[in-house]
Each structure stands twice: as structure tokens, then as C-alpha cells.
């Protein structure tokens, strides 16, 4: 009687389910930022003049450069998946190194941007900030909160890709089993997509 075989006996892998789980998580991330975009939309509607005025404080060039940096890092992650599928393990590693370097570049540029705002006392709680009109306060509050939360995601994404690299080195992630890399890539692209919306909403109001 005890003569049955499990459908997937021998290997416990279901790449489709793994990716599905990752996507479900990404949907919750979208709604997390969605809530913030909702707050942004309403307060911008209520304070459109103040938002316009405050947005001139942001540096469009730095924002644009960061957009290009993130888009390029998305490219290198996407290419790394192709490379691993084709069995070019070394190229995969270099592309992931490039991605992490782009992530660091993004953070360094963000650091300079934030430092400039700190010098102008625009961080919530600082002197200059306290004397701003309510609408402009809201703009800077949302700016710091949303780019800060996004920056946190950049850090997490970079670390996650570092773990993927370790797995590739240990040969746990291989040309035949690369769902870990795909999921890491998915997270990274989400970070990029969120920035795609943050950039015009904060920097390009003009």
C-alpha cells in the first residue's frame, strides 16, 4: 500500500512560487509608498503654491543624475540575470558589483543633497524650518520622509544583492538555479520604480 511518489520528490524547488511570493511582497511595498503618495497628492492640492515655491530649493541636476544612476543600475541587474542564464558567471558577478557601486553612488549624491538642506536648516525641527509657512513645512517633511524611506530601500537592496553574490560564489545560485538572483533583481527594480515617481513629484514641480 505504501507505494506512492510525491509529485516533486527529489527536488524541493518551485521557482514560480518563489517569484510569486516576491511579487506579493512588492505589492505591499507599492501600497506602503502609495499611502505616502496619497498624502503628498492631498497636501499638494491644498498647498500648491507653497509646494511649487519649496521645490525650487531642490537641485534638479542632482536629482536627474540620480535618476540616470538608478536606471543604469536597473540595467546592470537585468543584464546580470541574462548573463547567469547564459552561464557567464564571472560577468554576472561584475554586473552585480557595478549595481552595488551605482547604489553607493546614489547614496553619496543623496548625502550631499541632504547635507545642503541641513545647512539651510530645512530639516524638520531646525530653526529655518520652524519659520516656514505650513505648506512648505509639509513639502520638506514629505521630501525627507519619502526620500529617506526610499534611501533605506536602496541600502536594503544593495545588501540583498551582496547576499546574492555570496550565494553565487558558494555555487548555491547557479545558471540552473537563479531564482534568488531574480528576486533580488525584482526588489532592486522596485526601488527604481519608486524613484521614477519621486523624482518628478519633488524635483520637477516648476
Amino acid at each position: 500500500m505504501a507505494n506512492f511518489v510525491l509529485a516533486n520528490s527529489g527536488h524541493n524547488r518551485d521557482d514560480e512560487a518563489s517569484k510569486f511570493g516576491m511579487w506579493l511582497f512588492l505589492f505591499t511595498e507599492l501600497l506602503l509608498f502609495g499611502g505616502l503618495f496619497l498624502v503628498y497628492t492631498i497636501y499638494r492640492y491644498l498647498n500648491s503654491e507653497a509646494f511649487l515655491h519649496a521645490s525650487y530649493e531642490l537641485n534638479v541636476i542632482m536629482g536627474t543624475v540620480n535618476t540616470v544612476v538608478l536606471l543604469t543600475s536597473s540595467l546592470t541587474v537585468a543584464l546580470s540575470i541574462t548573463a547567469l542564464q547564459k552561464g557567464h558567471v564571472k560577468l554576472t558577478m561584475w554586473l552585480l558589483v557595478a549595481t552595488i557601486l551605482f547604489a553607493l553612488t546614489f547614496l553619496v549624491i543623496k548625502y550631499f543633497e541632504w547635507s545642503a538642506k541641513f545647512e539651510h536648516g530645512l530639516f524638520p525641527g531646525m530653526d529655518h524650518y520652524e519659520h516656514l509657512p505650513a505648506g512648505e513645512k509639509m513639502f520638506f517633511f514629505l521630501y525627507f520622509f519619502m526620500t529617506g524611506l526610499h534611501g533605506l530601500h536602496v541600502i536594503v537592496g544593495g545588501v540583498l544583492l551582496g547576499f546574492v553574490m555570496r550565494d553565487i560564489k558558494k555555487k548555491k545560485t547557479t545558471p540552473d538555479n537563479y531564482v534568488y538572483l531574480e528576486n533580488g533583481g525584482l526588489y532592486w527594480h522596485l526601488v527604481d520604480i519608486i524613484w521614477i515617481f519621486l523624482f518628478p513629484l519633488f524635483y520637477l514641480i516648476h
Binding site: N8, R13, D14, A17, A78, T82
Partner: peptide, 21 residues
């Protein structure tokens, strides 16, 4: 495919990704 079977994945060519970029 049965769950867990290695499947032939769609491999997106390098050039295509660069074009998208």
C-alpha cells in the same frame, strides 16, 4: 512542467535590455 523541473526560461538578450535602457 512539474513543479521543480528545470524549465527553459525566456532569456532576454543583452542588446534588448540596453535598448530598453
Amino acid at each position: 512542467h512539474l513543479p521543480g523541473d528545470p524549465k527553459e526560461h525566456h532569456i532576454v538578450p543583452y542588446k534588448f535590455h540596453i535598448g530598453i535602457w
